[in-house]
Amino acid sequence: MSEIPTIEINKETIIKPENLVYKPPKTLFDTPMHYCPGCGHSTVHKIFMEVVEEMGIENDIIGVAPVGCSVFAYYYMNVDMQEAAHGRACAVATGIKRVLPDKFVFTYQGDGDFAAIGTAESIHAANRGENFLVIFINNAVYGMTSGQMAPTTLYDMVSTTTPYGRDPKIHGHPFKITDLIAQLPGAVYVTRQSVHTTANVRKAKKALRKALEIQKLNLGFQLVEIVSNCPSNWRMTPLESLKFIEEQMLPFYPLGDLKVPEGI
């Protein structure tokens, strides 16, 4: 019986380039993000930049960041970007894509931007079939202005402008704009994802990649809604906020594809 050589397993033997399984993408600037602890915005920034890096399109993509917590997205995403007025991202993106049809174009919008102040721009861009991607973060609250009702705020949900809970008789109903846009012929890929578990982060990333691949085929408007959290304005810990997504948000905003182009 021959002697089996013993290999000592330690940090040095594991931390080698060939053993790397995950590192943050280079397309994300190596700078702390201003988002609150546990905020889904940062997760989506990260996975979207991973997709851009994996597809090797860093030099061929232009983003639009309008008003909301993600107004500073251009400080984190290392790609060419334009900041837009509140709600106007889809109009700005239309201007960009129409003059640079060979580039990838995306907007990164919150629920206030995409589904309240910018509803006309959003719906008409979708209806024209503008060939760009909207990443729509739905956290059911106005984060940047510190916790007012959003169009997507759930029934009975407390916000600073619905302190006794959202009452549809007073405040209207939660707005499923993604379902509405799925009805439009110009919108070709419409999906609702989340980033509240590891498995969902993986799925959301796949959806973002699929959207850009559809954009490459010049098929039409792509909408990826991401049901996200806002621990600070929900008055919860990050972990409690993930539970709230699972238990309260997802029954009202169910995950999955609403529309996928044939053959994709």
């Binding site: 334009q82 007025a85 106007r88 239309t94 129409r98 003059v99 721009e121 008409h124």
Partner: peptide, 26 residues
């Protein structure tokens, strides 16, 4: 030339912003 009828003047001026930002004559 790209000629597009926007959904509103708000839409139009912001399309101008986007395209002007790409260095185009708009």
């Amino acid at each position: 030339m790209v000629v597009l009828q926007a959904e509103s003047e708000l839409g139009a001026i912001n399309m101008i912003y986007g395209a002007a930002g790409c260095g185009k004559r708009v």
